[in-house]
């Protein structure tokens, strides 16, 4: 069995994920708010609100503590002249192999939180699938993007 991909993503990913995952976990709070309004209009009892609110708080705590750490530990990538090799996943482990000759597009992107931590993500598109390497530092991301786009240009253009 081939060893895992060599590189880890940037450790700043952990605090960045703490913020972004924590923030996106807030969307789940609409559920207890919804049940609360139902309780207010007298349609249902109060306890579902407490249960859901509790679950939401637990979720947020998880998202801000151990989830980013595990995700960072599991994320591995490797790019060489011929293919891109990724391994990631918290519960479900995925290994992905993308032949460089099949790559059609490479983009880098940076949201406000990632910018604060000096991170970018690289998105790789083939004719069928899209893959993302999250949280590389800016220089690595640019280097990766340039490497891949050179590889992709050299490869034959046929699908």
């Amino acid at each position: 069995m081939r060893p895992d991909p060599h590189h880890k993503i940037h450790p700043n990913a952990i605090p960045a994920w703490r913020l972004s995952d924590g923030a996106s976990s807030l969307t789940w709070y609409f559920l207890p708010i919804l049940t609360f309004t139902f309780w207010y209009t007298g349609a249902i009892p109060l306890w579902p609100t407490f249960v859901l609110a509790g679950l939401c708080v637990v979720n947020t705590i998880f998202m801000m503590t151990i989830v980013p750490v595990i995700r960072w530990k599991r994320w591995r990538y490797e790019i060489n002249g011929h293919e891109i090799y990724l391994k990631y996943g918290i519960i479900v482990i995925r290994k992905v192999l993308i032949p460089a000759s099949r790559i059609q597009n490479v983009d880098t992107a940076q949201g406000p939180i990632f910018r604060h931590f000096g991170l970018s993500s690289v998105t790789i598109t083939t004719a069928a699938t899209t893959h993302e390497i999250p949280a590389l530092d800016d220089e690595t991301a640019d280097a990766v993007r340039n490497t891949i786009s050179v590889l992709a240009r050299e490869a034959d253009q046929d699908v």
Binding site: V92, I93, R94, V96, S101, R102, A127
Partner: peptide, 13 residues
């Protein structure tokens, strides 16, 4: 082989 865009292995717990 040259038509494979990407390949994956997936393992749940």
């Amino acid at each position: 082989a040259y038509r494979i865009q990407s390949a994956k292995t997936v393992q749940n717990p």
